[in-house]
């Protein structure tokens, strides 16, 4: 084996890793915010009685769920310009990750929407709220509370998926780690530190989301 661990080179570049981590987080949060909007619209499509709304929504979810995310990322960045859609690396990546997460969130939200008791919607109708007001004041806020645990795991897996931005040279954590790996040859140390940063961030994100859940939990 003959490999002795020496972290000093990695520590010297630790700043780079942290900046990369910050960018990873920004990418994930940007993607989930846009993805949540896409997912919400799609979820209403999925539960719609009208086939015109339901079929495109179901097609979108099925297609995206069965494609590797890396193919989507490369497609958006390298192939779309051929169609005249030219985006910067970061914009392209966030948009792709948002569309990707939208499909998963749509299914999460669909289940959440179906779990809202019909009686609550009727109570809203009975005091004279319009269907749209019922959606915004009752159904959506309750749905979000119900799906918080799934939302939290989606955020964490999106955060991990930001590593794929390295494939189009977005300087996030994995990209920086690979750079340090090549520059310093401290292979083992670099990847141990990078993994630990990912694991630690996932743990913190999970804890934060649990705190949010506890604050918003509805006592029954």
């Amino acid at each position: 084996m003959g490999y002795t661990l020496n972290f000093s080179a990695v520590w010297r570049s630790f700043d780079q890793l942290l900046w990369g981590l910050l960018l990873s987080l920004e990418l994930a949060i940007g993607a989930i915010l846009i993805g949540a909007v896409i997912g919400l619209v799609t979820a209403f499509g999925l539960i719609s009685k009208s086939g015109w709304a339901r079929r495109p929504a179901a097609l979108y979810v099925t297609v995206i769920r069965n494609l590797p995310i890396l193919v989507l990322i490369l497609f958006s960045y390298f192939a779309l310009p051929q169609m005249g859609v030219r985006l910067g690396k970061i914009e392209s990546f966030v948009a792709t990750l948002a569309i990707y997460s939208g499909a998963y969130l749509a299914e999460v939200f669909r289940a959440g929407l179906l779990s809202i008791p019909n009686g609550l919607k009727e109570a809203g109708l009975a005091i004279g709220l319009t269907p749209m007001q019922i959606r915004t004041s009752i159904v959506i806020p309750l749905m979000f509370r119900n799906v918080l645990p799934s939302l939290s795991s989606t955020l964490i897996s999106l955060f991990k998926d930001t590593s794929l931005a390295a494939a189009i040279a977005v300087p996030e954590l994995t990209f920086e780690a690979r750079k340090i790996n090549v520059e310093t040859f401290r292979v083992v140390e670099t990847w141990i530190v990078a993994s630990c940063l990912y694991v630690a961030t996932c743990t913190v994100l999970a804890a934060l989301m649990r705190m949010v859940e506890r604050r918003l939990v509805i006592s029954r």
Binding site: G119, L120, A123, G128, I138, L142, I218
Partner: peptide
């Protein structure tokens, strides 16, 4: 229209068997 029906629903008040209070 849904809007008109909503206005008319407000002419009557209703209490339900299952209360249907908004839990949030």
């Amino acid at each position: 229209s849904e809007k008109e029906i909503a206005r008319q629903r407000a002419l009557t008040g209703m209490a339900f068997q299952q209360f249907n209070l908004f839990p949030h």
